[in-house]
């Protein structure tokens, strides 16, 4: 992929990708660092990109891998992309998880931040970023059905949260 083409493609998805990282991580500085590293990696690997998937899917996958590697380096235990789903649905939200509320008055935005990352990310990829389940499975490196179940559970959890908010 030529450098100019890469930059053009990157510019088209950078805002969405940064927003995905920001809403997934809940930390602007960390989201910016992950985006920087992911963009570097994509830039350096651009000649490997063969167009088997869309550019968007490819760079999102790089960003997710960068997040995973960050967690490995920082020894944070994460299970959110494990193939085996938890038997429970979505954990009960706690107030300290709401780290995005200051920046947005959107009820959905706040409800999203009350979900675990393992449900929040697939939901955003589906509904905010407009990816198919196949593309979500590629980005998160999980089975397609796993992606489908996670989105479904996230929807149900959000429905409950928004109803509670109304009541």
């Amino acid at each position: 992929m030529e450098e100019g083409h890469f930059r053009s493609e990157y510019e088209q998805v950078s805002g969405q990708l940064y927003t995905f990282l920001l809403r997934t991580l809940g930390d602007p500085d960390l989201a910016s660092d992950i985006l920087q590293e992911a963009a570097y990696r994509a830039y350096r690997s651009r000649n490997q990109f063969r167009g088997d998937s869309s550019f968007k899917t490819w760079i999102y996958r790089i960003a997710v891998n960068t997040m995973k590697n960050h967690w490995v380096r920082s020894n944070r235990e994460r299970k959110w992309f494990d193939e085996v789903l938890d038997t429970q649905s979505v954990e009960t939200p706690s107030p300290e998880r709401i780290v995005f509320g200051k920046e947005s008055t959107s009820r959905l935005s706040q409800a999203l931040m009350m979900l675990e990352e393992g449900y929040r990310a697939p939901f955003m990829l589906k509904h905010v970023d407009g990816l198919s389940y196949s593309e979500i499975s590629q980005v998160l490196d999980i089975a397609e059905n796993n992606a489908r179940v996670r989105v479904h559970r996230a929807r149900n959890a959000l429905r409950r949260l928004l109803r509670e908010d109304v009541s």
């Binding site: 950078s14 805002g15 969405q16 990708l17 940064y18 927003t19 920001l22 809403r23 910016s32 985006l35 920087q36 947005s104 959107s106 959905l108 935005s109 905010v128």
Partner: peptide, 8 residues
């Protein structure tokens, strides 16, 4: 309709 933020 959620806000899309400008990337650094």
């Amino acid at each position: 309709e959620l806000e899309i933020y400008k990337a650094p």
